[in-house]
Design a protein around this nucleic acid. Structure first.
Lengths: 253, 253
DNA sequence: TGGATGCCCTGATCTAGGTCAAGGCAGGGT
DNA sequence: ACCCTGCCTTGACCTAGATCAGGGCATCCA
């Protein structure tokens, strides 16, 4: 696995040219960060934001780059500013399970023990704020609001994981794909974007690795949903939900 | 679903006969609770234990009783003192996925939103300490050590959930059953008990609902593991791991 | 302009595990 | 002593989805 790991590409997010962790308070990029309100930083007070921000470095990862790999020492935690990341676990023969797709506002760094429990890979160009794990934990200890927020995040993640177990253990291929499209749509709405033309910033193979199916089955199921009048494909990565009701029924509760 | 719900049976755990939440500090059942060191109460200081304990009621649930049901208002959180509980989610047609088996020391109450996200059912006679959710949260706010501990628990649960997604999405039936037996064995060891004759306090159907298989496949796979020399069945609910190495190999990483 | 590459779709065939059915065995009640 | 019930096992058969294979269509680069 770790052979596949590629080093991160340093970002250029701070237009001031100053080192990312030494920015004047008034010019904090956080103030214009679209992901802020959905992020771990949401409960950080304006007064404390410079201090919080000072712990971080903003980085950019190109598609197919790894933020970290299963088995690495967990030195950092991340908050996604933009782009799509997938988390995955692999078996030694190459079979893998994607455990989640993450978007702007999502936090990466839970569930690690002595080593990283999963791989985090950029699927699109990704911008993240990266925090050293130990400093982040110290900060949390001193700022219970942030710790409380992280507990909420963990709790939400856990509920999502349980939903996914139900999907993987008991749903049919049609139900899986329909559920997946609905979740993406609902998530877009929750983040204030349109839920209807749903963007799929991942390949059919990646969807398959998320849904416990092969890419062929994902593809076949998509055309089947199209023929049933539930969706329409503008191109392979933009899905219009022509009948959300049909889709929700096919998703099977 | 909620039709199935049965009311809890009040416990008789406190031999003093006093109401469970009014016990003298010196006589705290916590002091002799075998589960204490593995529980949410582990980080509670001895000095604070009476206060913590005063929030709780000790209850006993008989097999097949529900602690709560998917969709209920989440009024309580629980710490298991003894017995086995399963958490599950169901589809409207009856298919269900067990998302976890819980034992002495485990905490129940994460991952709920407005309503309970899953059903909790006693598989054996179960003793729990039950805390009102709101009082428990207030206590946490005032005792960061407990909140920190809950975050650790949530993080561990999340890692386990991701393992389970890999199992459900990508492992074969043999790998699933072998992984399951190994996990039970490892967990017993982690709790200071013997890892080798593994007890299965759940039925084949329940194992199937946990592993995304049918009870027939679980049964067939067990006899296959027996024929391969990996395990031996003393009776249907006690498994001896005759070759742990074979079993770990069959579990596939 | 013409490969080369990466994704996607679709058809033919295969198989792991599901479904259906029958029988065994232990424990509990009368 | 007998039945009933719940659980487990095993056999015969079936099917959803995997596997294998081929072809299409963008995008990129020489």
């Amino acid at each position: 696995m770790s052979i596949l790991r590629t080093p991160p590409v340093a970002g250029t997010a701070d237009p001031s040219g100053l080192p990312a962790n030494r920015v004047a308070a008034g010019a904090l990029p956080c103030n214009t960060c679209a992901a802020r309100q959905f992020s771990i930083c949401a409960p950080v007070s304006d007064a404390d934001l410079p201090h919080f921000f000072a712990m971080s470095v903003k980085l950019r990862f190109e598609p197919r780059r790894y933020l970290f790999d299963e088995g690495d020492a967990p030195r950092y935690v991340f908050s996604i500013a933009s782009g799509t990341v997938c988390l995955s676990k692999a078996l030694s023969d190459g079979r893998r399970q994607i455990t989640g797709f993450l978007f702007a506002g999502d936090f990466i760094g839970l569930a690690h023990g002595e080593t990283c429990a999963y791989t985090a890979e950029a699927l699109t160009p990704v911008e993240v704020c990266r925090f050293p794990r130990d400093r982040f934990e110290r900060y949390m200890t001193e700022h219970p609001h942030v710790e409380r927020r992280l507990l909420q995040i963990a709790s939400t993640e856990l509920a999502a994981a349980q939903d996914q177990m139900l999907l993987l253990g008991r749903k049919t291929a049609t139900e899986r794909v329909a559920s997946f499209l609905i979740r993406l749509s609902d998530r877009a709405v929750a983040h204030g974007r349109s839920g209807n033309p749903v963007c799929l910033p991942m390949t059919r193979a990646e969807i398959g690795d998320y849904l416990g199916l092969t890419l062929e089955t994902v593809s076949r199921t998509m055309t089947q949903l199209r023929k049933r009048g539930a969706i329409d494909l503008d191109n392979t990565s933009v899905v219009r939900l022509t009948s959300e009701e049909t889709l929700r029924r096919l998703a099977g509760v």
